[in-house]
Simulated assay, not measured.
Amino acid sequence: MASQLALFEQDDAAGPQGLRYAPEFISSETERELIAHISELPLKPFQFGAFEGHRRVKSFGFRYDYSEQRLVEAEAIPEWLHAVARAVESFGDLPEGSVRQVLCTEYEVGVGIGWHRDKPHFDKVLGLSLGSSCKFRFRRRGGEKWERFTLQAEPRSLYLMDGEARRTWEHSIPGVEHRRYSITFRTMKRESGARC
């Protein structure tokens, strides 16, 4: 894993520019505590307009309302997420309080997420992988072909998407082999503010 991290930080050809990865970002004990908190949340199937996704989610700070096609305020980020949010901000060289939106997600066996980019209202995206690993796939069109890259996101690891990784590459997760949880931390674009 250390060599994988070194590749991301030293060799731009190893993956999308702006993608950083940290294995073992949190301890096993913290992972267990976070999974326990997520398991107690009133998770609901992801709503994509009229469609319902198989993964179950809970948003804090803000959530994207597909029917209104805008960000709306959600419950405040709970206290049990504050310490890990501060650690995530430190990893991303972000000022304290930069994380304004958090999404907790549960993936049952066989559930993944299709190709997409996060909404343009958000800026940097950081994801904490919990419970089991996943293949975090990236693609972007290069002429008539797709340029592709896959990151094996291990439990307790953190990724950061910024720059090209955030803006020009799409990402997806194929169906997971074991139940997985994730916590996604997002900063806001300046023009988004709190009234999106």
Rank of each mutant, 00 (worst) to 15 (best):
L126G: 05
V109F: 03
P174V: 03
H171D: 04
E147Q: 14
Q152C: 05
F138W: 03
S98D: 14
E106F: 13
A153C: 04
L160A: 09
A165V: 12
S157P: 00
R167W: 00
R141F: 10
G142E: 15
G175W: 02
H116V: 12
A87W: 04
V99H: 08
L94E: 13
L81K: 07
V88E: 03
S133H: 15
S129L: 12
V111A: 02
S129C: 15
V84A: 06
H171L: 03
K145Q: 13
L130Y: 00
T105G: 00
K124I: 05
R100V: 05
P174L: 05
S172A: 15
A153S: 11
F136S: 08
V88Q: 03
S132Q: 01
H82P: 00
D93P: 00
K135F: 09
C134P: 00
G114H: 00
G97H: 09
E79A: 14
D162A: 14
G92Q: 11
F149G: 11
P120V: 12
P174C: 05
A165M: 09
R140Y: 06
E154A: 03
S90I: 06
V84T: 11
A165Q: 07
G175Y: 01
R140A: 11
Q101V: 14
F122T: 09
G163K: 14
V109L: 04
F91K: 04
E96H: 10
G110N: 06
F91M: 06
H82V: 10
P78K: 12
I113Q: 01
H171E: 04
E144S: 15
S157L: 00
A76G: 07
S129G: 10
K119N: 12
H171Q: 07
V109Q: 10
L103P: 01
W115G: 02
W115I: 03
V99C: 09
T168I: 11
L94T: 10
L151I: 07
Q152F: 08
D93N: 08
L126A: 13
R180P: 02
W146D: 15
R180T: 02
A83F: 08
L158W: 08
S172L: 04
W115Q: 03
Y107I: 05
V102Y: 03
L128K: 12
K124H: 11
E89P: 13
T168Y: 07
L130W: 00
G110A: 06
T150L: 05
Y107F: 05
P155I: 11
K145D: 13
R148Q: 13
R139G: 11
V102H: 03
P174I: 04
A153Q: 15
D123F: 06
V109H: 08
R117M: 07
F91H: 04
R179K: 13
G131S: 06
L81G: 05
R86L: 15
G114E: 01
T168H: 09
V102W: 03
